[in-house]
Amino acid sequence: MPETEGSTARTEHDAEFVALLNATWFGANLPPEAQVRLVGLARRYQAPAGTTLLTEGQLANEIGIVLSGRVSLRTLVPEQGWVTILTVEPGDIFGQSALVPPYRSTSTVVALQPVDVLALDGPGLRAALAADHDLAAVLYPRVLQALARRLNATRLQMLDLFAR
């Protein structure tokens, strides 16, 4: 595990969370100030396999960063049942609807394996991003990267390349 950023991480709790952030591509190498802001908004939780972490259409109150385990993004399709659109692997995020009006989840998020999640408080993060442009300047590119990657993947999935 990376060393904690001693001078900026004030408590042991903060230091632990910064270390967790640094172990994910989404949170790694952000400026120490940004990491401190984020851990101030974070909680960590574990959930057993099968747990529904977010439900499609409901308010997304948190952005989750998967630390370990796998979660699936599902949607219910008439006559097909639950279809998994994508799985989110350690290091990646889910629940980014918490940043985008109307802040409602676009899929149902279910843990496929026991998961360890670092969750950032949605309303708190929105307020922080609105107030702290330095934070916004470093965090939004990461969110965009995650979205762009997902968009590109979705496009390829739509092509149904292996169908023929």
Partner: peptide
């Protein structure tokens, strides 16, 4: 590319 809810692997 796609899976139903019984698939625990990557999508």
């Amino acid at each position: 590319d796609r899976a139903d809810a019984t698939w625990l692997g990557r999508v």
